[in-house]
Design a protein around this nucleic acid. Structure first.
Lengths: 307, 307
DNA sequence: TCCTTGTTTTTTATGGATAAGAGACATCGA
DNA sequence: TCGATGTCTCTTATCCATAAAAAACAAGGA
């Protein structure tokens, strides 16, 4: 049976929304709510019904009037708002990054299902989707092998990343200046300046900006395989640095500065400059990643020597 | 319920095997049979039981004696020997390459399940696995978009292929001559010569050789992402040229000659030569593919102009 | 004539069931 | 002792069921 995580998440969001409105005010129409909260009208209506029953809203003359802000214990626990597959992803990465699994370990679906408390169907789907990240591999015959978040993984990842990014950066700087992406680049550059000025408090915002910057560069000369590959990068960085917060602020500050040089290089239109700035940034990103792997996450056995 | 395709396939293979043995001779042990036919002993035993019941074999004193070659109508139909997922893959590719689906079409799981007569779970698994080929894409929200085997697909594919192969070829020619791969290269070279000599009759054997050659080159400096990507190439070529047999012999002959030059270049160790030979081969492969796309498969509407 | 809301239909997420197939263990004859 | 066969257990492929969500449709009021 499908779980009702969407409902619960939407319910919580709606509680937030109610508190943003003064008592007596009206909430937007169902359609608007649906698109704002990212759910279907069906779900929105269910939530509204529930909230009316709880006495927080009143439905009158096509308007949903806020009756009270008293949402004390109404919030649904956050765990219940994430879908089974997202939960599994998180559990799995946690398990992996904590180093519970040595590279080379065979895992089978049935066992995983037991370990993570998720149906085998769910496990199987997850492994299938996940295998593109190169961290697990289906073994001919049966079962899966766990490849580990190892140094060889990271270095193979970076080798590709460098090829792709260099290619994209050069292609980008050759684009005619009228192209929309130059304008977007300007905006992103502004965001970098803004973030840098405020780095002390807002350094967490960097990873999103980083992602948008690199994706913009890459998208200048679109290639679905390159863009798909960037999903892997995003994913890996997301989890790795979630487990590994050491010197995050400093790390991000450095990266911002490198990005700004990189952007400047792109503007210059000079390919040698672009090449140099891009390489410099990637080299430093790689180094940072490796250092954080060696110092923190990887207990003995998590490092391998390539295959 | 799991289908018994393994059993049926094994049964058919065993019939072949029986006919290879004179009446009165004994088949190998269960263990040996299992490993030779690529199935588990469980399956082998089931097949043997069945064949004994059919009077083709007799089990006496630990030996399986062939009693007769009379396997007339015993073969299971070939369709019943392929697993649901393989069947789906084939159906889907057929549907796609025949041009029944215009690029950009949204497909949903339920509809596909109906169209192909396979459970939605099966469809979903297929789409998940298949999405890495870049021909379908999960749409945020729900459903899938069919991207089409278009020119832009092929050209994006080749762009990556060229990057990867060039990198691998250069890495390969730098490998010390003692490495095992040089020996393997020699063997593969021989196979090329042999095939070329016999091209009139054996030209179908090229695609397998082609695959092994490129994978050998690539594997010289292993990178899981590159090797994974080569799966896509293999897959695409496999299906495309299955639908498109035009001038296959000529095409393969040309490729063999190019490979031989490429191999020679690798041996020379001179990077410029390698670079040139590799590029030449890829350029010609690309051209061939494009021509065959334009001339045969793609009806109007199958070509797009990139996204 | 549109936006809103009420209602119905379709699709998707997720767990469960089950026979097929794989693998592990036990036994036995040379 | 060791490979072969017999037996038992566990895993996987595959379909089905069902509630949740999404989408499509219908009707009503400014």
């Amino acid at each position: 049976m499908k779980s009702d995580t969407v409902y619960k998440r939407t319910f919580n969001q709606m509680l937030d929304l109610i508190q943003d409105h003064p008592v007596g005010a009206a909430l937007p129409s169902e359609t608007v709510l649906a698109s704002e909260l990212g759910a279907s009208r069906t779900t929105i209506r269910k939530v509204i019904d529930e909230l009316c029953a709880a006495g927080l809203l009143r439905f009158e003359a096509r308007r949903r009037i806020v009756l009270s802000h008293d949402c004390g214990g109404l919030y649904h626990p956050v765990v219940e708002t994430v879908s089974a597959s997202d939960r599994l992803e998180k559990l799995f990465m946690e398990w992996m990054l904590r180093g519970d699994a040595k590279p080379g370990t065979a895992i089978n679906e049935a066992e995983m299902a037991r370990r993570f408390g998720i149906s085998t169907t769910g496990i199987r789907e997850f492994l299938n989707r996940f295998s593109r990240f190169g961290l697990v591999e289906r073994r001919p015959g049966s079962g899966w092998v766990f490849k580990g978040f190892s140094e060889s993984f990271a270095s193979e990842l970076f080798e590709i990343r460098e090829m792709f990014e260099l290619r994209s950066a050069l292609a980008f700087c050759r684009l005619p200046r009228e192209e929309a992406c130059w304008k977007k680049l300007g905006q992103i550059e502004q965001e970098h300046h803004a973030l840098l000025a405020d780095i002390e408090t807002r350094f967490h915002d960097f990873s999103d900006l980083d992602d948008r910057f690199h994706r913009l560069v890459i998208h200048g000369a679109p290639n679905r395989f390159i863009e798909d590959f960037y999903d892997i990068i995003t994913f890996v960085f997301h989890y790795h640095y979630q487990w590994n917060k050491k010197s995050e602020k400093q790390r991000n500050r450095t990266a911002i500065v490198e990005h700004l040089r990189y952007i400047e290089a792109l503007r210059s239109g000079d390919e040698a400059t672009v090449d140099a700035a891009c390489r410099a940034h990637l080299k430093s990103a790689r180094l940072t990643l490796f250092q954080s792997m060696i110092n923190e996450t990887a207990p003995a056995g998590t490092k391998d020597n390539g295959a």
